[in-house]
Design a protein around this nucleic acid. Structure first.
Length: 563
RNA sequence: CGGAAAGUAGCACAACUUGGUAGUGCACUUGGUUCGGGACCAAGAGGUCGCAGGUUCAAAUCCUGUCUUUCCGACCA
């Protein structure tokens, strides 16, 4: 592409409403522009990068035997009412009415329609397996869109769905996709980790996430430096260090602790370490109240609590409810003589002589032991901390931040049952189809790669998804020799099959260099003074330039693109 | 949805406290000098100061409402 007379611009100053480095560079390099909260438009350059990502995804999907389809974004709401997800998504789904007051939604994800499509195909066990996918926009009314393209309300996603007769078949389909995903992320050049994750609103039995390792990530990845354990914090098992404490159990003691209602305050007041305390949190799980005991220096994991109690929803009780149940101000709840069932984290089992609230304003109990109260259930209900032991090998776990760029789910028969997707097996019996679903967020990949490869000049894109592979910079467009050499070179490089941008603008060299570095072209060829001698300069972005004779250019470009 | 901040030229900002002619840098146009790392000089063009209402002789400035954006939290395949 010749730059003169093209839609191409860059900004010299930082965008004021982009907090992330990647978001800022994407805006400054003229790739994207914010239209509203969580809504972006893609300019020619940005679309080019996105399309290159899309192409890699499409190629690998097709190679894995999946077939592409296209679903509408505007969908009659009945499909989501039938599946029960109109309520599950609630306000996260954009819904609208047509002129006849009929309800529609903008598709937040497409299991329903893919099942609808699959029904046309599936009648017998002979009709499976198969996998269909689309690359299309999704719409979600996020409560708080943020971080550039990471959390937007409209976004391009590749979603694939596999259909099998049984679990074994699904396992094969799942592994195929899993491999395809690794190929995709490897080819794109993303630094990523695969972690175990929760199934959330999607349902199903297994979920694994492909997480880009990025500082600004919204997810916390729990990794083991010793073995292959990798998990999203949301679902990471927290195991107990079972080293026995030989501490003597002491006499229970009521202590006056005026105005010390938080762990920080009481810990300071009694001059005791936070891990000597046991927090009592009153939770409401499906309209029933529970007191949850966890170590004072830990956070409760609501998902784990919900699962332990087989509940649908777990929320912290209101202040009024807490005060009614504990008969004390908030901050003084404790397990002793409490009327509601007690759920205890298994770490507390190992503790002795700990401190709890006394269910009496301004009082705590010291030297509390397990014999002092009754527990209904014991389990793992807290978040893992960095340094905790790996559930697999016992090594100390480390944390990293990640952006979820892709995920794979085994859905089981959840949707096929609720939407009636069945087939006849060999015995002529009707059975539900076993499904898998597989998503990839295109713009999230784009931002993650940008974030991972941003430097002081701009984004150092990997060659595979860079807006261009080669930048051809003409130093002096008024110099006839230089111009002729560059014009010729532009044709030659194109015919070699490289994606090249020819900066023939009437700009000073410095402007051209800065722009090419900002938009992140990996290989730059400069046609300058020595063009007369048939010599030009070539360099890999971020490295030293070297002079080279024109006839050696092809090999050099290939070499630099691959390094 | 709670808390905080901000909306003035295409972009980034100043002027607002103390009401009276709207300014700077980048970008843009013209001319000149420059010409291998975001040039310089000169002359220009570009604004219903987010929107609505109020106070006032007079509002970018004070008051009220409203919309939008950003950050923190709640929330989130």
């Amino acid at each position: 592409m010749k730059l003169s007379n093209q839609f191409f611009y860059t900004l010299r100053e930082d965008a004021k409403d982009e907090e992330t480095r990647s978001g800022n560079y994407l805006v400054r390099s003229g790739m994207i522009k914010k239209v509203g909260t969580g809504i972006y438009l893609f300019m020619p350059l940005g679309l080019k990068v996105l399309k290159k990502i899309e192409t890699i995804i499409r190629e690998e999907m097709n190679k894995a035997g999946a077939q592409e389809v296209l679903m509408p974004s505007l969908i009659p709401e009945d499909y989501y009412i039938q599946s029960g997800r109109k309520d599950v998504f609630g306000h996260d789904m954009f819904s609208l009415k047509d002129r006849y007051n009929r309800g529609y939604v903008l598709g937040p994800t497409h299991e329903e329609l893919f099942v609808y499509a699959a029904k046309e195909m599936i009648h017998s066990y002979k009709d499976m397996p198969f996998n269909i996918y689309q690359i299309a926009n999704k719409y979600r009314d996020e409560p708080r869109p943020r971080f550039g393209l990471i959390r937007t309300r409209e976004f391009a996603m590749k979603d694939a769905y596999s259909f099998d007769v049984d679990e074994e078949g699904c396992e094969v389909s799942y592994q195929k996709m899993f491999q395809a995903y690794q190929n995709i992320f490897d080819r794109i050049g993303l630094n990523y980790k695969i972690v175990r994750a929760g199934t959330g609103a999607m349902g199903g039995s297994l979920s694994e996430e492909f997480q880009a390792v990025v500082e600004i990530g919204e997810d916390t990845l729990v990794l083991c430096p010793n073995c292959d354990y990798a998990s999203n914090l949301e679902v990471s098992a927290c195991i107990v260090d079972e080293t026995e404490s030989y501490e003597e159990e002491k006499e229970l003691e009521l202590v006056h602790t005026p105005n010390a209602g938080t762990i920080e305050e009481i810990s300071e007041f009694l001059m005791e370490d936070k891990n000597r305390f046991v927090k009592t949190l009153i939770y409401k799980v499906d309209d029933k109240f529970y007191a949850c005991l966890i170590p004072g220096d830990r956070d409760l994991n609501e998902d784990k609590l919900r699962q332990l109690l087989n509940g649908k929803e777990a929320v912290l009780a209101d202040i009024e409810e807490v005060e009614r149940i504990t008969k004390a101000k908030v901050g003084f709840a404790g397990p002793i003589d409490l009327s509601i069932p007690i759920i205890m984290d298994h770490h507390v089992q190992m503790m002795k002589n700990f401190i709890v609230g006394a269910n009496k304003t301004d009082y705590h109990y010291k030297n509390v032991n397990l014999k002092d109260f009754k527990v209904k259930k014991i389990g793992d209900i807290i978040n893992v901390q960095e340094g905790d032991l790996c559930p697999k090998c016992g090594a100390k776990l480390t944390f990293k931040k990640g952006i979820e760029c892709g995920n794979t789910f085994k859905l089981g028969t959840k949707y096929s049952e609720s939407l009636g997707l069945n087939y006849l097996d060999k015995e002529n019996k009707l059975r539900p189809v076993v499904m898998g679903c597989y998503g990839i967020g295109l713009a999230r990949i784009m931002t993650s790669v940008a974030e991972q490869n941003a430097d002081d000049m701009g984004i150092a894109w990997p060659a595979q998804i860079a807006p261009f592979e080669v930048a051809l910079v003409l130093i002096n467009e008024k110099d006839e020799v230089q111009k002729a050499v560059a014009d010729k070179l532009y044709q030659t490089i194109q015919s070699m099959g490289f994606d090249v941008v020819y900066d023939d603008r009437k700009e000073r060299p410095g402007v051209k260099f800065k722009d090419m570095e900002l938009i992140g072209v990996p290989v730059q060829i400069t046609v300058g003074k020595r063009a007369v001698e048939g010599i030009v300069e070539i360099k890999r972005r971020g490295k030293e330039k070297e002079e080279i004779s024109l006839d050696l250019l092809n090999e050099k470009i290939v070499e630099l693109l691959n390094c």
